[in-house]
Nucleic acid binder design. Structure first.
Lengths: 251, 251
DNA sequence: ATGTCTTTGTGAACGCGTGCACAAAGATGG
DNA sequence: CCATCTTTGTGCACGCGTTCACAAAGACAT
């Protein structure tokens, strides 16, 4: 069945912590900006500020890649850009397919951040026959029927799913069967994939919900004069002063 | 100046761990699906499978909210939906503004996942005068000049930034000054905000880069017969067998 | 060459998050 | 009313990630 193997058992293969990998793109962006301004070297303190992280964390992160800094001076910007790019695998070309060319899929196809980082949109795929042939971001949309051949012909190993939730798992299965081993999922669903396939999830509404939680906390703290008190919810009473409980009680 | 206070000093106010908060929307979605299928109760094991997490983790998460389960039976679906919604602050209405109505902004405006979770798109804002008045997702786009009054009139506390990177910080500053205290940032930049303002970041290209890293690792492991060996990169030689190093060496 | 000064690289401590494993709680049947 | 069975709630241990603090390394001036 291969049920929900979304989380990998850690990346302890060569020793770069997952948390560090997740920050490398951040450093890379900051470094690229410095590079464009022809800044030759940068200290961990400066770069950390630019990337929005702690400087000690940054140094430790870089230490996993090797000793690329010079004590008393800092890091060579160009050299570091290259090392991180190589570590992330961005020195090679990654053909990517985007499945589901709705509003979001079109936005992704037009997103400039991909091409500039070694990612090439090899194909746009949609299930709607009316979309077929219509160019989006200068690339003609192809029909889902050709998914397998498109993957094979372009040697695609990374797929982006921007379909409705209902179609996501099915598309995912076909992508995986066709040889895709990394998936970026924008559909609000939990995808089941076999071992060896990586899935990363981006969920817009989840992010907003997390913000709402913190926003509500702020409001509550504001209302209750001093924070840290009051918040004793009436846990016993099943029908407290909540007023309108639109749900059945258990038991 | 308020330099880079992106990370909050932990949410230890009422005791719900940040990691748990981030999973609550996941549970909520799974529960909502069960609710629509009129499933009355669900065990931690089943729900965990549906949400793609460990069942012990799920039980511990719920324990932070209180004891809402019944031993031997499981959790009451409707009741839990309500409790999580309330905890996340989704029982109230959250007016949201989206700034930057390009491809992505339009996709967000059309995204159905917002409205169904208590979020209401109060306004769409763009700096392009040509966009003003043009309806997107049934909502007329307004000009950036009116940003402050829009925020004030609608009581907006959550803002979404979907502008180009160059404009993001400026827009952010104006949002914060106008009273917004939670920001969802899609622009590839580190935003500086004063204390008390929450920022969550969604970066499309970063996710792809992380996938590329793992994809490359797979390829390397594949190439080297048995994984776990070989990977001794020539650390000494500045000019190893890399071939084309398009960067300056340090020192 | 030597001393000073800056900045890296990292050892060590700490805290958070995860998952195991089990006791307590309650449902259910006799 | 008692026994059994299911499932929750959680104590505990472990590992990862973060941060501090400092020694080692190198640049630079004299």
């Amino acid at each position: 069945m291969a049920t929900g193997r979304t989380h990998r058992p850690a990346t302890r293969s060569r020793g770069i912590p997952e948390a560090t990998v997740a920050r490398l793109p951040l450093y890379l962006r900051a470094l690229t900006a410095l590079s464009e301004r022809s800044v030759p070297t940068v200290s961990s303190e400066e770069l950390a500020a630019a990337a929005g992280v702690n400087s000690a964390k940054l140094r430790k992160d870089f230490s996993y890649l090797g000793s690329y800094g010079t004590r008393g001076v800092g890091y060579d910007v160009e050299y570091l850009v290259y090392q991180i790019s190589r570590e992330l695998g961005l020195t090679q070309d990654w053909p990517v397919v985007i499945v589901g060319i709705g509003n979001l899929g079109a936005a992704l196809a037009n997103y400039g951040g991909f091409a500039s980082r070694g990612f090439r949109v090899a194909a746009l795929i949609d299930a709607d026959p009316a979309m077929a042939g219509k160019p989006v971001a200068g690339i003609p949309v192809q029909h889902t029927d050709d998914l397998e051949s498109i993957i094979a012909e372009n040697g695609v190993s990374i797929g982006v799913i921007a379909t409705p939730a209902g179609a996501a798992q099915q598309v995912c299965d076909r992508l995986v069967a066709a040889g895709v081993t990394s998936i970026l999922n924008f559909a609000p669903t939990v995808l089941s994939v076999p071992d060896g396939v990586d899935v990363r999830k981006v969920d817009l509404s989840i992010e907003l919900q997390i913000l709402a939680f913190h926003e509500q906390r702020k409001a509550v703290e504001e209302a209750a004069g001093e924070p840290g008190t009051v918040l004793q919810v009436p846990k016993e009473t099943g029908k407290g002063p909540d007023g309108d409980v639109p749900a059945v009680m258990p038991a």
